[in-house]
Design a protein around this nucleic acid. Structure first.
Lengths: 350, 350
DNA sequence: GTGAAAGCGCTAACAA
DNA sequence: TTGTTAGCGCTTTCAC
């Protein structure tokens, strides 16, 4: 039907039959040669590979998926592709996946349950072999749906009660403790915290780890020193303003992510405050930009490559491990402090 | 085989036959109802939809693709997902695509021909219905391969001689002229330009447009005022250093993209220069960050949503338009100047 | 070690 | 308007 178009015959892309014909073998032999699924004599294998190269043949993944039930497609759902942390994460995940012969389906939920529902539906329709849910969010009810379809899953910071779900544990406390320790050594006593949206697990965990670190360091704390922001640049700027209006301002602030911290840097500048002289600022993530802010941002590094690796490994184990039982269910990714230029001893107060 | 696992029978995801059986119609009727491909009586359609909902059925896209030859998959290849311009672009493209029932396959070439080859191969294997190549690059030879497979294509700034390829023209000159005009009005006479890698079409075009604008404004020009950078933060910083070492330094600089400009901002700060008092800086792209640099970046805006729309429309026309001939082959996306805080009259020289 | 043949779930041509 | 049926390109029994 599409073979003749305006009288000009169109070359059809070669299929397994064309290869078989050229190599003078059966299509089964071609399939076996490509997949290495069972032994093929060297003589025939050679002829097959020759034919494949000659025709520039590659298998139709859809046909393959249809019969084998495996798509070699991994989904990755992130919170917000517009926060540089996530592209960097996706980039790592893609590299690893492609190196292992997988393709990826990217979606961002934008912390919107309706959008997440669409994402999930798309993953289901495309028959992803597994999905990494790196939204750090509060949309668990929806995830039940994925689990219900027996979709291998890996979640950040959340346990789903499904035999096919594993969890990546994020150890923020190591990095946060280091940050509080660093500030304390510098002489700061009054340290604020700009959290992310509290509906996010990750934000809540970070906040709790901060509280614990403050307590452990025997530093004073005050309710008004912890302010809920939204992990965006604008949110950080707004948070700063709120922080400054306090009767008894802090001398240092730790932010739930780098975007927030960068927002603070900017707002501080506009209000005439010099960082770090008048205020020390620490971020969390260590996005590529962090090194290029003014001043360069001291931050708690959360490795994207570690996270991507953990996510991919978890998924692959679920999918490829037939020895059910030997599967690792929990993966740990840790954090560490990177000291740059946005922290210094307090100029006043202390 | 997978139906019995540890003695527990697993529910198979429903197929079209299950729906047909439940609705007491043929599978063809189910297919027709879903696709609206030909009229189905209301009575039966209602029964079908009921069955679909009851079973929570959705079609298997792979089977669909196999028989129809259409995957409803669009590829998008970008230059570097780590430059915030591209995630913002991908986000727009994804939104539009999903709204029209398409899925997207994201890849980044990193300006590496070998990687681009892999990307192309992946698009071909997954039988993308079309690919938007937004690498702004110099990898045309490879694209011939895509064109050769009759893959509908849309390219930025490059004409491919294929009946299935269309082009998005980027009008940088409007924005660049405005930038030069703005600087000139401010009193600047010596304006530098930090280009991107010259192997990129876009970088070369921007540079040429800059030269033309300078000429038109009757401003002086000097070979050493144009420096090749690489569109990264680090590259911008390096470019700045080079610019400062000139015997007769410029008072303003336009950068080929925002990343470069942000790198300049940072390097200038470290060398003790104040922007914009000592140096005016203009970027290009207007990434989300541009508003949050110190000072906020004056920049030439290139709309991601416009670009994404153009790319999607171009692709969709190629794929869905059967009336060959009525297809638009060229799309135009324009640029404009956004004045913020990184430009001011020159303090000295002028 | 190799080939023949039965589908995977769906669309579309053809019949009724 | 509806149903029957032939594949789409591939993997995987099952014979040989």
């Amino acid at each position: 039907m599409a073979r003749k178009l305006a009288g000009k015959s169109v070359v059809k892309t070669p299929d397994i039959r064309a290869v078989a014909a050229l190599a003078r073998v059966s299509i089964a032999t071609v399939s076996r040669t490509i997949n290495g699924s069972s032994a093929v004599s060297e003589r025939l294998a050679k002829r097959v590979w020759q034919a494949i190269n000659q025709l520039n043949y590659f298998p139709n993944t859809h046909a393959r998926t249809l019969v084998s039930g495996r798509s070699r497609l991994f989904g990755i759902i992130v919170e917000n592709i517009t926060n540089p942390f996530f592209p960097e994460l996706i980039q790592s995940f893609e590299e690893i996946a492609v190196a292992h012969g997988y393709e990826i389906l990217v979606s961002s939920s934008n912390s919107d349950p309706a959008r997440l529902a669409t994402c999930i539906r798309r993953m289901l329709e495309r028959k992803a072999d597994g999905v990494a849910v790196l939204t750090f969010g509060e949309e668990e009810p929806l995830l039940e749906q994925l689990a219900h379809h027996h979709m291998p899953l890996v979640l950040a910071e959340f346990h789903l009660n499904s035999p096919k779900a594993s969890t990546i544990l994020l150890d923020y406390s190591t990095g946060i403790q280091a940050a509080v320790g660093h500030l304390s050594e510098l002489g700061h006593r009054k340290i604020g915290f700009l959290t992310g949206p509290r509906k996010l697990h990750s934000a809540l965990t970070r906040e709790n780890d901060f509280r614990a670190a403050i307590k452990e360091a025997a530093l004073p704390s005050h309710k008004s020193w912890i302010i809920e922001c939204d992990h965006t640049l604008k949110g950080g700027a707004a948070g700063f303003t709120q922080l400054r209006s306090l009767p008894d301002p802090v001398t240092a602030v730790i932010c739930s992510n780098d975007m927030t911290a960068i927002g603070v840097l900017r707002a501080a500048h506009f209000e005439g405050l010099r960082v770090p002289r008048d205020l020390s600022v620490i971020g969390l993530d260590d996005i590529d930009f962090a090194e290029f802010t003014l001043p360069p941002l001291t931050t708690i590094r959360l490795s994207r490559t570690d996270l991507a690796h953990a996510a991919f490994d978890a998924l692959r184990q679920q999918v490829e491990e037939q020895s059910l039982g030997a599967i690792r269910r929990e993966f740990l990714v840790t954090t560490s402090l990177v000291v740059r230029g946005s922290t210094a001893p307090p100029a006043w107060g202390g």
